[in-house]
Amino acid sequence: MQKLGDFKLPHFFNYPPYFTLQPVKDTRQKQVQLWKELILDYCRTQKIFVIGLEDDFPLFSNSAIERSLSHEARDIFLSGLVSDGRAEWMDKGHKKCLILWLRIQDWADCILRFVKDNGLEDSVMTVEEIRSGIESRGTELHGMDRTVLMRALRMLEQKGKLAMFKGSSADDEGVKFSA
């Protein structure tokens, strides 16, 4: 079994035709499905939030069998994730894709759990602290994408679970959790 770092690749990754878009509908559906699952799985384990279509993303080519995905194939697989609500295009040209292996709602739940587990109700934290502070170490929040984090926080803010305020500099925003 081939591995990428500590990630175990599925069997189909070594089967050349999966790197060519299949013309028959049923076969194509299955192909897209397998790729979507693989991309999500990989991003989740490797904590990857953004995939650039032109980048050397490790899943887009397999040197062992000398195959790589065409631009069209990459676009189709990621668009599949977008229509499932598991990804979003970051630009109109489909050059960068934000992968939501957890939906924004799930991230929001994650944050609430984190607040509860650490007794942070009524405390203040900066956004940076949530992403890279000692408290979040070992949780899913650690090292998460800033855009995704901000959107989850805004969602919570709308629900009245916290309040956000600007710090002294622009990139230093604070959060006050409510009980």
Binding site: P16, P17, Q22
Partner: peptide, 10 residues
């Protein structure tokens, strides 16, 4: 659905 095409070989 018994066959799959592969256009990737050099």
């Amino acid at each position: 659905g018994l066959a799959m095409i592969d256009d990737g070989h050099k």
